[in-house]
Amino acid sequence: MKKTGISKIVAFIFLLLMAFIWIVPVLYTSITSFKSEADIQTNAFTILPINWVIGNYQDVLFDNTSAPVAKWFMNSLIISVSQTILVLVIVSLAAYAYSRMKFKGRDAIFVFLMATMMFPAVVNLIPLYNIVDKLGWVNNYLAAIVPGAAGVFNIFLVRQFMKGIPMDFDESARVDGASDFQIFLKLILPLIKPVLTVVALFTFTASWNDFLWPSIVFNDVEKMPITPGLQLLQGMYALDVAHALTGALVAIVPTFILYLFTQKYFMESLSLSSGVKG
């Protein structure tokens, strides 16, 4: 008993020190966003603002001349929500067929898809731009929404989960006269809600945080999502600490809020996707 008491204290002190490192950048950003740039220039290192101001937020969000953060924010919201919905529909349909329907070539196609997960995405970057350009999607939301739904991993994840549902369920529903699509919609979909929640959260955050691809397909400042937008913002406010940090903070608010409410799913999802059971 005594021994576990000591190890608990050691662990606590260690974690407290690490927590300091992890929390300081976030606190620094949040607090600085309420300092005026003039205060920072004269008294850079007061921990709390001398005067609390919200001017940085007004400037960053609504100064539309060069870094329209509010517009970027809305662009990101539209893109991320649309991609999430698209992925959920496509993935659940495909995973259903791969796990519960019998058809010619099913396993061969699935193994092939799995094997392509080895293909590094960096190789398709340049031609993908060309395709998107030919479709007329440069500077169009679709460029950031659709290609991201082509991935295989989510299908694998949902299929794994579906395999845990006994086939007897489908059989008895079929005896009662349900069609495949009814079984999918009324029986399977409600049962796979947990894994779909995970897919939705990961798709949304990945889409929100995507950087390289959108910075290639958007060069119109008005159309851009916020993650590549911040690179422009950094250039603009290179010497303006308060405004730059306010922009960064605005960009992380949505995923942060999402995280606050759905923490449990993020944690559980990792044991789902890492697959190696503890």
């Binding site: 600085t32 950094q234 940090l245 999402l258 993020f266």
Partner: peptide, 13 residues
Amino acid sequence: LFSVSAVMIIFSM
């Protein structure tokens, strides 16, 4: 959960 660009702005400051 944060984007690379937001984190890099924070750390560059």
